[in-house]
Amino acid sequence: MSDFYFSGDVFSELDRVQRQVSSLFGNFPSSIRSSRADAFPQLNIGSSDDAIHIVAFAPGVEPSSLDVTVDKGTLTISGERRAQGAVEGSRTYAKERFSGNFRRVIELPQNADVDKVEARYENGTLSITIGKREASKPRAITIQ
């Protein structure tokens, strides 16, 4: 006889197993595409029929210190966020705001058209739009 107990409710069993695995391995991201909570800048990535949209949240970063490059199917966002709020001659007891150099690399889907990239920085948010290749866009087929 097996020691395995099954209550009959598959979803509650899956939830129980997920909680046990989470407790064993800590708080890993719930998605393969998720990253560490302390990654900077934090990103939102989505797509429409015409483009891929990437929003990087980078408050306190000067637009002139940002660098966006596309190479071999990857988009790289790098730059520097300078330390702010320090009073000259004071000792720091706690520092919760990240400062220094950063770099995020995003693998682009195959249908991204790297010749159609636009980037705009406004109010601490870097918005990047990458067009999709014409061949990958949905199109209606006429039935004869």
Rank of each mutant, 00 (worst) to 15 (best):
M1C: 08
M1W: 13
S2L: 11
D3F: 09
D3N: 15
D3K: 15
F4N: 09
F6K: 11
S7I: 11
G8Y: 01
D9A: 02
D9Y: 06
V10N: 05
F11G: 10
S12V: 06
S12A: 14
S12Q: 12
E13I: 01
E13N: 06
L14W: 03
R16D: 12
Q18W: 11
R19I: 04
Q20N: 11
V21L: 15
V21Y: 15
S23A: 15
L24W: 15
G26T: 04
N27V: 13
F28Q: 14
F28C: 14
S30H: 06
S30L: 08
S31R: 13
I32A: 12
S35L: 12
R36H: 14
A37R: 06
D38H: 10
F40K: 00
P41E: 03
P41Y: 02
Q42T: 13
L43C: 03
N44S: 14
N44K: 13
G46R: 12
G46F: 07
S47Q: 15
S48K: 07
D49L: 10
D49Q: 09
D49E: 07
D49P: 08
D50P: 02
D50S: 14
D50E: 10
D50Q: 11
I52S: 04
H53V: 15
I54A: 00
V55Y: 00
V55A: 09
A56K: 01
F57I: 09
P59E: 05
P59S: 02
V61C: 07
E62I: 05
E62G: 07
P63T: 01
P63N: 00
S64K: 10
S64C: 02
S64L: 07
S64M: 07
D67I: 07
V70E: 07
D71F: 11
G73V: 04
G73W: 02
G73F: 02
G73H: 04
T74R: 14
L75H: 01
L75F: 03
T76K: 08
E80I: 09
E80M: 09
E80R: 13
E80A: 08
R81Y: 08
R82D: 09
A83R: 13
Q84G: 01
G85M: 03
A86P: 06
E88I: 05
S90C: 12
S90R: 14
K95V: 12
R97S: 09
S99E: 07
G100M: 01
G100N: 04
R103D: 00
R103K: 12
R104Q: 10
R104V: 07
E107I: 12
P109T: 03
Q110K: 12
A112G: 01
D113A: 08
D115I: 00
K116A: 14
K116M: 13
K116T: 08
E118H: 04
A119N: 00
A119I: 00
A119C: 00
R120Y: 09
R120E: 12
R120P: 02
E122I: 15
N123M: 12
N123C: 09
G124M: 02
S127I: 00
I128D: 06
I128V: 06
I128N: 04
T129K: 11
I130G: 03
I130H: 01
G131V: 01
K132H: 03
R133F: 06
E134D: 13
E134L: 10
A135F: 15
K137Y: 11
P138I: 06
I141S: 04
I141K: 09
I141P: 02
T142V: 12
T142S: 08
T142H: 10
T142W: 10
Q144N: 15
Q144L: 15
